[in-house]
Amino acid sequence: MIQLSNALVSVSHVGDVLLTMTVLSVLLSLGSNRLGALVKIMAFQGIVVSLIPFFLEHHGQMSTGSIILLQIMLLIKGLLIPGFMYAAVKKIKIKLEVEPIIGYNASLFAGLIFILLAAFITNRLQISLPVKNELLMIAAITTLAAGLFLIMSRHKALTQVIGYLMMENGIYLIGTALAKQTHTMYVVEFGVLLDLLVGIMIMGIIVHNINSSYDDVDTALLGQLKDN
């Protein structure tokens, strides 16, 4: 009995380590300017985020179905999408994000503020949450906010796609934090997977088109449509 509870403690410790790594990868991506490095960070984050549900206490007894789904998720987030993006990066000539809308130091600082805000929000919400895992909620909100921030503050289309991916990771984490497995069977996993596949597919096609018509993937070049 004692052994069992020890095992549970260690499992949740691994979960906490993974969550910390997620937050660190978020900060790393906010401060990084090379597209290749960003893709690698995203692959890492994808793997870590997919693994987290394995190590959450309330997901203790998993059905075979959900384990298979998690594996698929791992494959898609850790291998498939980063692979595609890496191939895309190779085709592009200019691999640096030059002059982002918000600088790297400011971005990092914003990331820290997100963590604080996330901690504050989690603290406020705690009363009504089913799972008492503050770190999970903090990591989730930070990832979501940082993803949105990346979409808004970077010029390169690929970086924006990476921001979108990160946002999806955040949503997935929030989903796993909130939903009990009883009657939400696979809703979270299924939704996020579909969103990812569809989004990335369409965005990939458009990025390809942007690259072939402008020889770059800079969305600052896309500034012709405006209200006067």
């Binding site: 949105l148 979409i151 979108y164 946002m167 989004g199 965005m203 018509s213 896309l222 012709q224």
Partner: peptide
Amino acid sequence: KTALEATWKYVMICSVGIA
């Protein structure tokens, strides 16, 4: 090129919204 821009904006903004 303008159609490309419109499509990019459409997909990006709506995907974030839908997420």
